[in-house]
Design a protein around this nucleic acid. Structure first.
Lengths: 207, 207
DNA sequence: GTCTATATAACGATAGAC
DNA sequence: GTCTATCGTTATATAGAC
């Protein structure tokens, strides 16, 4: 294995991605980015228009990676419920928060249409993707037909995003998992033909 | 009505509360606080230990008010489901985000046990309060006994907190409402004996 | 392309007059 | 108690050498 020599713009983007995740936009200074990237002032302003331009490149990449990671699970094998469960139970750096969702609490990101756009598009895509899976599950009889796919999708995404809030408030990932288990118990397929009425049969804990 | 003359410490706390809500801790400077409060540097450092001390007073008050506002609905009239619904549908400044929850995305708040404590306590209190209401609903047959009260409570709080994220990402309060409707449809009492699946208002006691 | 030097403003806090 | 003056540091950006 050769050690890969990464270009300076590449290092700048990656350093910015890390810092935006850790400290947000207003909490990240160009100086901190340059130190982490091992670059000088000149490099940053040569390749990018400044802090906003560099942040835009970083946010776009993070958004793209986040979508790809979600699709890897949502487009995987299993029934609709199983794929949603896999998405909800996917391993996460819970205490670090969502690298996309956390940006919505950044006043300068929300104030900029450019910076907010990738965030909006990512969460919107995720909601649509989940909505179609819920509807697929309804056709298969896995979910009650009375449910609204888009509403349930929004609830799923919100539970994940809010789970990060609960976890970071308490300093423990447990709260995230508790909220996810609650949602899964509400979504758990009730057998359509009149089987045992036990809810949450596929949730391991709290039998 | 006499116009009330508010003390300087009072104005400082209120200005800080507003700015913490709008811009978070790292995004709020002492200078901005002093300008909004109409006070000079000396006043702030005379009454408080500095930015962290002032922020702590502001966060504590916001936490207290948030709990009181939630209790006003959760301790109100109606069945357990109805009280939860009232809490979820309560009017909110959705696009401004949650003044308590948004602080969890602030690196300096999370890094400080003092500043994080009121946030943690508020969300923890809310989860416990909701859990007891869910369990009450289970005793009344309004919710399935297989559900776990604490899990459902965490899901409810997470849906609200995540709803703010969706709303701020899209720049519209609609996404919040969509997620709430999805959660309510999952929680809606299904008649225990196999009645009609109409949701909402058929409650046994305390109508 | 990358670096250092520099510029202007803001940040967070202190000192001391009144 | 409140004010202004000041301090040392950082934020964000530009200039110009190499």
């Amino acid at each position: 294995m050769y050690s890969i020599r990464v270009s300076t713009p590449e290092r700048l983007i990656e350093a910015t991605r890390e810092l935006l995740w850790e400290r947000g936009y207003v909490g990240t200074s160009p100086k901190a980015i340059l130190q982490r990237a091992g670059a000088g002032q000149g490099s940053m302003y040569h390749h990018f228009t400044g802090k906003p331009g560099l942040a835009l490149a970083a946010i776009r990449r993070t958004a793209q990676e986040t979508r790809a990671a979600a699709e890897a699970v949502l487009g995987g094998p299993g029934s609709p419920y199983e794929r949603i469960e896999a998405y909800l139970r996917r391993e996460r750096d819970v205490l670090r928060g969502c690298p996309v969702g956390r940006l919505t609490m950044d006043p300068d990101v929300v104030a900029s249409d450019d910076l907010r756009a990738p965030v909006d598009e990512t969460l919107d895509w995720l909601r649509e993707r989940l909505a179609s899976i819920v509807e697929e599950g309804q056709e298969l009889g896995e979910f009650p037909p009375a449910l609204d796919g888009e509403e349930i999708a929004a609830t799923i995404v919100a539970t994940v995003q809010g789970g990060y809030v609960l976890a970071r408030a308490s300093g423990s990932a447990a709260a995230f998992d508790t909220g996810v288990r609650g949602l899964l118990s509400l979504l758990a397929p009730r057998s359509p033909a009149g089987d045992s009425p036990a809810r949450g049969s596929s949730t391991p804990t709290k039998a």
